[in-house]
Write a protein that binds this DNA or RNA. Structure first.
Lengths: 162, 162
DNA sequence: CACTATCGTCAATGTGGTTGTCGATATAGA
DNA sequence: TCTATATCGACAACCACATTGACGATAGTG
């Protein structure tokens, strides 16, 4: 926004530091998001739920009780149909999901949770709640919310800067 | 930490919200870090530097003026030698890097920047500085620093919780 | 009935990474 | 000096995650 003004010289000494700062922050964002997902997957593995990956855990938690088509899941998960189809297949092989013919559409399959699938989703919610409590214990809720807001503000800035 | 106490009922109404919060924050962290890297790569592409990807931009900025071996780069970039070797090869094909025999070690190759490679690193620094300025204009430096600290605190929490 | 949109799948590709293996060279120890 | 052992970079295989394009089959609309 203030980029138009030619006051580059003023920041000459700080330019490097500021650049390093944002890049470090970007690295920190990536590290933190990875750490979160890995903690979730690891805790699930500890609880006995094997064969899960970050992408699969993210997808399975979005399967409603009455099932969903791959296309519907693709929409809510912002993924391609192909990507979802593959993940659903792997979730089926791992025993968390069963695919049944869609009674309303002979083209489609309905992905429904197995008993084990329902269990992993339930335990996933518990694990996420525990992670949230631990995070709040360290930062506090207010700080978590500000973190969330600031991250979204940065995302908006960086994305809409086309 | 407070997980031992059995006061789950007390948070019954908030449990879901808190869980959703951290997951949303994790998504926000991922989105923001992606947006940053994509902004960088896109700005470089606009500046005429094609054939670059996030991983390549991250690596090329770590190549010192006098060059480095793949193994040395692997260490500073926390990647495997193979991953670095592949990226260096692609950077060479794109014209940003040249590999010369290491005078001190007949086994190794030295990756050195070409003129174009030096240019892309320089312009990358400028682009990062601009991104940092824009970010500071939105959040302010203090808020950026707090963001950084909080992200690192969360990463520590999630990683050392094994 | 014909046309078009959508269903899920196949194939190919891209990006970013891993482990294991291997010949060649470095280097330290007996 | 000779012999282990460590390291260099490369090859192959593989994994995770995602994309686009094409396709047959079915749905739905005019």
């Amino acid at each position: 926004m203030q980029v138009k003004s030619g006051m580059n010289d003023k920041h000459a000494g700080l330019g490097m530091d500021e650049a390093a700062l944002t890049e470090q922050v970007a690295d920190a964002m990536k590290a933190a998001s990875r750490a979160y997902v890995e903690a979730l997957v690891r805790d699930l593995a500890v609880a006995g739920y094997t064969g899960l990956t970050p992408a699969k855990t993210a997808l399975i938690s979005r399967i409603p009780a009455d099932g969903a088509t791959a296309s519907a899941l693709a929409q809510v998960a912002s993924r391609s149909k192909q990507a979802v189809g593959k993940l659903v297949l792997e979730l089926e092989n791992a025993g968390y999901v069963r695919r049944i013919p869609d009674p309303d559409d002979k083209r489609g399959q309905l992905a429904v949770l197995t008993d084990r699938g329902r269990q992993v989703v339930e335990d996933g919610v518990r694990i996420k709640a525990r992670l949230a409590m631990q995070a709040s214990a360290v930062l506090g809720e207010e700080r978590m919310e500000r973190l969330h807001r600031d991250l979204e503000a940065l995302t908006r800035l960086l994305a809409s800067r086309f």
